[in-house]
Amino acid sequence: MQNTIEQLVKKHYPNAKSGEEVTKAYLGFLKEEYKSDLTKMMFATSLCADDINVSTDFRRVLSRPFTLGGMGGLPFAGLTGITAFAHHVPDGGDAFIFYGPHIGITDDGVLGKMRRPGQKHLTNSCGALMLALERMRDKEGVYIPVNNEIDYQQTLLERSVMPFKHQILQAEIPEKEITEVTFGNIYSQVHDLVRISKNEFNCNRVFLLGCVIINTSPEFFDYVDVRTFETLDLKSLKEKELVSILQTEAFKNL
Rank of each mutant, 00 (worst) to 15 (best):
H166F: 14
R137V: 04
S188A: 13
L111M: 04
V181R: 02
E180M: 00
I105M: 10
P101V: 11
E134I: 01
I186F: 09
Y143P: 08
M136S: 04
M162E: 13
T179Y: 01
Q189G: 02
N148P: 11
C126D: 12
I168V: 12
L122V: 05
S125F: 01
I168T: 02
Q119F: 13
K139M: 13
L156I: 06
A171V: 04
L156A: 10
T106L: 07
Y143M: 10
I150V: 12
H121V: 05
D192Q: 15
P101G: 11
L133F: 02
V181F: 02
T179P: 06
L156D: 05
D138W: 13
A171P: 08
K139H: 12
G184S: 07
K176W: 00
Q153L: 10
H102M: 01
E140T: 13
M136Q: 07
Q189E: 12
V110L: 04
I105W: 02
E158D: 09
R135L: 14
R137G: 07
R137M: 15
Q167H: 11
D107Y: 00
T182S: 08
I144P: 06
C126A: 09
G184F: 04
L156F: 11
E149P: 12
M114Y: 12
A128R: 05
V110S: 01
E177I: 01
E140N: 15
I168P: 00
R159F: 08
K113W: 05
E177K: 11
I186H: 07
T123Y: 11
L169H: 05
E140P: 04
D151L: 09
V194I: 14
M130V: 06
A171I: 03
Q154G: 11
T123H: 14
N185Y: 00
N148W: 10
M130N: 05
A171N: 11
D192L: 07
M114V: 09
M114K: 09
R159Y: 04
F183I: 00
Y187G: 00
D151I: 01
Y99N: 03
T155P: 01
E172L: 10
V142Q: 15
K113I: 01
T155W: 02
E180P: 02
R137N: 13
G184R: 01
L133S: 12
N148C: 08
A128H: 08
E180H: 09
Q167R: 14
S125T: 03
E140S: 15
R135W: 10
I150W: 09
D138N: 10
Q119Y: 13
V181H: 10
M136D: 03
G109P: 08
V146I: 14
E140A: 03
Y143G: 07
V110E: 14
Q154S: 07
D108Y: 03
